[in-house]
Design a protein around this nucleic acid. Sequence first.
DNA 1: AACTAAACGAGACGGTACGTCGTGTCTTTCG
DNA 2: CGAAAGACACGACGTACCGTCTCGTTTAGTT
Lengths: 192, 192, 192, 192
Amino acid sequence: MDGDHPRPGRKRSEESRAAILLATLELAGEVGYAGLTIEGIAARSGAGKQTIYRWWSSKADVLLDALATKADLRVAIPDEGSFAADLDVFLKRTFELGAKKQVADGLRALMAQAQIDPEFGARFRTEFLFRRRDALGEIVERARERDELPPGIAPGTVIDIVFGTLWYRLLATLEPPSPELAEELVAVLAKA
Amino acid sequence: MDGDHPRPGRKRSEESRAAILLATLELAGEVGYAGLTIEGIAARSGAGKQTIYRWWSSKADVLLDALATKADLRVAIPDEGSFAADLDVFLKRTFELGAKKQVADGLRALMAQAQIDPEFGARFRTEFLFRRRDALGEIVERARERDELPPGIAPGTVIDIVFGTLWYRLLATLEPPSPELAEELVAVLAKA
Amino acid sequence: MDGDHPRPGRKRSEESRAAILLATLELAGEVGYAGLTIEGIAARSGAGKQTIYRWWSSKADVLLDALATKADLRVAIPDEGSFAADLDVFLKRTFELGAKKQVADGLRALMAQAQIDPEFGARFRTEFLFRRRDALGEIVERARERDELPPGIAPGTVIDIVFGTLWYRLLATLEPPSPELAEELVAVLAKA
Amino acid sequence: MDGDHPRPGRKRSEESRAAILLATLELAGEVGYAGLTIEGIAARSGAGKQTIYRWWSSKADVLLDALATKADLRVAIPDEGSFAADLDVFLKRTFELGAKKQVADGLRALMAQAQIDPEFGARFRTEFLFRRRDALGEIVERARERDELPPGIAPGTVIDIVFGTLWYRLLATLEPPSPELAEELVAVLAKA
DNA sequence: AACTAAACGAGACGGTACGTCGTGTCTTTCG
DNA sequence: CGAAAGACACGACGTACCGTCTCGTTTAGTT
């Protein structure tokens, strides 16, 4: 439906796209998210500013794209037979991502930008945050069916507790995620 | 040792300070944190920009000060005899703050800015986040002494879970804090 | 060598340039040189400040450009056959310029700025003052060849006396140049 | 009428006055007139800004005062018996002043400021320029009485030519005054 | 000696303009 | 006709000084 009749005109330059995303990651590492600018990305990548504006809405969108392209932000959903095992594997896979400084810094910046720019916030939630929720949601749903959840707590709250604790470490205490944290969460959230 | 010899020169104008903080809250409400500017605060408050820069480092610092002055961000530490009761009261008092749109929006913006501006981040953590942690920490310590904490979890992690879940709702799902959430957290974190 | 390969990118806007120069002259007339600001010129002309800074170094440069564009500051070199006649015509043509309040005020301001800002001073001398000297220099040179100069005085000094007297009236006594002055200078400087 | 009843209160501090004038000359030499600021003078001299504003209207007035105090700007009126001799002596005495870089730079700045700030211009003309004119005027008047002036030229114009040429060298060509110039002016303006 | 008055240093205040940076748009030229 | 180059209007930045205004202190008359 989209590519039926190849529209006339020059095709999008994959070279440009790659150069822009690479420059974005490099610059974010060098000058931080606050120092990241469309102007700087254009200069570093050799692209024109217009080219960036044509394909992305803001520097946060470029960064999100760059991050998603570089480090695959999706995490496979494990199925180990028990909630405790599933959660343990899920957390370990998630921690692998969060342990990379580049990814962690990027995510912190994006979560920040989501607060400040509501339009990006909406995109960030639907395209990233909620997808991650859904992944964990599947695990939790299976646990609920097996009656492995602690009593007196809704499935949604379990998800909030897991991601909340992770994000809090990322945003507030700046502690890197540790294997101990995974075990503690399992201990608290998986019924004995 | 400090106020011995009052330094020479004109004293700081309390009028200006108040006008600046008021203007900041008003503007933050009207145009949002992204639209908040030092220039705008100066214009609205009738102060010169220099006066703002003389006493605060950034718009985030002004907002933090304004928020702290307006809505007392400290929460008294309850002592109800049991961890479950203490936590319940603590959460309810905390929710009162978070239920005010002005406060919630302000905190979201400050947490965001803390990610983007490391220097402000350091101030925000020591002057706000860690003080709140310490308050809850006292409650948790008492619980530990009475052996009311769930097994297999460090006191610090309990704190991370509580605040993490609150902040996650604030930042990610945008759900207002609910009494149910308080009960669920108590259910999970206070040993039966 | 210069216009060989027209560089890519948007061309300089002649509209902006004209609007800026016009606004400059208007404002200089209304608020005086001291009250003239880049900010004011930008506001009045509808241009951005950056556009002004892109093409001129200071408000003095803008004013010089505006003056040169509006009132052609060049004076044709007469050739009447005798030094007395040449000088007389040269002075009359020069006085026409100096009689316009706008031009006189502008030149006074530029000469002033040339004292205060050495870099502009260098530009003002080479682009304006010395060109005027050269024009008169040609006349004086012809006079020297015809032996029409007074004895005991170098050609350069003749020029200094002529322009010096004119500028002194402009800067110090604020008297407008008069036909009598022209005659007196001719009487003193052209050998009988 | 002024010192009749010595008013109560602290007397003007001569120390401050001297420190301010000294700092002004030093700073003018170091950073130039454009870089001279009341703030800087206050800091360098150890005076408060108010003290400067109490006694002077602008930085130009301070500089004029400093210059007048340091280098006596008055020139004694010679009476050598002939216009040629009087003018020669007058010019030589004047050149002594103009040869000092500090004085020359100061005068250039003041003449410039006189163009830009009309109020200071009025003070500068009556307190400096016209006094110098009057001095030379006395010499020229004696010459007129002795019929030593060239024909066809008003006494006032003689003065304009002399000072005009000097100022032009100062302002436009930046050539230091030379003994040759004195001789040439005498040659042209004193009837053989 | 107490009181009043003025000048002093210091420094905060409301302002204005500075010159720069980045935004998002528009225009021109090249491949 | 997409993409580079780059000019444009705009808006905010953080800084520098302006000239004014408290402050608390010091120094001189005046009671």
